[in-house]
Nucleic acid binder design. Structure first.
Lengths: 140, 140
DNA sequence: GATATATTTGCAAATTTGTCGCAATTATAT
DNA sequence: ATATAATTGCGACAAATTTGCAAATATATC
């Protein structure tokens, strides 16, 4: 059960699983990445704005959520701990976002490239833009 | 000379290379990605805040600069037109953003991974997060 | 369960970021 | 040098994010 993992992560840091934290976690569960605006409005009357910012900041620090770059804005999604590691492909034509399976060799190479320059990689994010199969077939 | 390319890009759109635009371009030249805050303060007394926002928006539209989402905020850097293709490493501790040389093998593999799922990749963006050499040496 | 303790929340106010209209200024072509 | 169209700075807004603090709530202990 996902709530157990969440609880465990919090307890490990001597933090508690409060009502607002559970609500925010649930807003993210089984959903596509969401903007702050959307999270705030979906939690309206249940969780205060300030609490949402504080919670997302905490969740990110604990590796529970992840900020995703989509165009200019960022969106929040649960981290690899709750959904497998993956990348995104954005179609420039139809605008769809597809997920790409993590590829072990690619993942390794990414870490290697960073380590080579004396960095200690913890996580990464890869976004590919182009044309999806459908759109490539029938040009505009 | 970089200013010539900048001028050419502007002229092509019937726009002019003004003092503020040159100043902002110079603030970006040969520097790591910078936040708006930093740009605004570095340009203090020379260019108005509103002009900086308008100029960055214009530069982005013309493909002169590129916006990176880093944490809550974003940072601006010159596009691949002025600096070769590269990736970024963001230090979770000190907040610095470093550039990583593009690695031909890695680039190829990224395209291959996308092609394998029937996508036609055009561009991509890779952000690695972790600890930079300095911060890894002396933990918090 | 009830209680003590430390954490966490909601609220309201402050700060920071980003936008807009418009008169004054500046670049470009003539 | 001048006309014309683009561009800037300014001040006022509007939106996004942060902060301090008293009240509420979770957790461990009895």
């Amino acid at each position: 059960m996902h709530h157990d993992s969440l609880h465990a992560l919090l307890v490990k840091e001597k933090l508690s699983l409060t009502r607002p934290r559970r609500i925010i976690f649930d807003l993210l569960l089984h959903k596509d990445p969401q903007s702050m605006q959307v999270l705030i409005s979906r939690a309206a009357n249940k969780v205060d704005r300030a609490t949402i910012y504080r919670t997302i900041e905490l969740f990110e620090r604990l590796g529970i959520v992840h900020r995703l770059n989509i165009g200019w804005k960022y969106k929040i999604e649960l981290s690899d701990l709750f959904v497998g590691h993956h990348h995104h492909f954005h179609c420039n034509q139809c605008g769809a976002t597809h997920t790409l399976q993590a590829n072990p060799m690619l993942e390794t190479m990414i870490d290697t490239v960073a380590a080579k320059e004396n960095f200690s990689p913890r996580s990464h994010q890869l976004e590919i833009h182009g044309l999806c199969g459908q759109c490539a077939g029938q040009p505009a």
